[in-house]
C-alpha cells in the first residue's frame, strides 16, 4: 500500500528540482518551467490528501483552482517575457538591468 509519506517525499523531490531550475538557469522560459514544477509538487500534495475527504472534495477542488491559477500566471508571464525580448533582445534575467527610461 502506498502511504502518504511516499507522495510527500516525491513532491518534496519535485519541489527541490523546480527550485534548482529557478536558481541555476539563465533563461526566463526555463525559470517559468521551474515555477510550474514547484506548483505541480504543491498540487500533488493537495491531490494526495484529498483521498481522505470524500464528502467535501476540498483537496481536488483546490487542486483544480491551483491548475487554473497556474494557467493564468503562465499566460501573463509569457506575455511579459515576449515584451522583455522585444525591448532587450535577450531573455536572460541577469541582463535585464534597465528601467524603461
Amino acid at each position: 500500500m502506498i502511504t502518504m509519506t511516499h507522495y510527500l517525499v516525491l513532491s518534496a523531490g519535485l519541489f527541490c528540482i523546480g527550485l534548482y531550475v529557478i536558481l541555476a538557469k539563465q533563461n526566463a522560459v526555463q525559470i517559468l518551467i521551474g515555477i510550474e514544477l514547484m506548483l505541480n509538487a504543491a498540487i500533488l500534495n493537495l491531490v494526495a490528501f484529498s483521498r481522505f475527504d470524500k464528502l467535501n472534495n476540498s483537496g481536488q477542488t483546490f487542486a483544480l483552482f491551483a491548475i487554473v491559477l497556474a494557467a493564468a500566471s503562465t499566460a501573463v508571464a509569457l506575455a511579459i517575457i515576449l515584451n522583455v525580448y522585444r525591448r532587450y533582445r535577450t531573455i536572460d534575467p541577469g541582463k535585464v538591468n534597465q528601467l524603461k527610461d
Binding site: 502506498i2 491531490v47 483521498r51 483537496g59 481536488q60 483544480l64 491548475i67
Partner: peptide, 16 residues
C-alpha cells in the same frame, strides 16, 4: 489517477 482523483488528472492533461 493513483490518488483516485481522475477528474484532476484529466484536467491536468487538458490544461497543462
Amino acid at each position: 489517477v493513483l490518488c483516485l482523483a481522475d477528474f484532476v488528472a484529466v484536467t491536468q492533461v487538458v490544461v497543462y
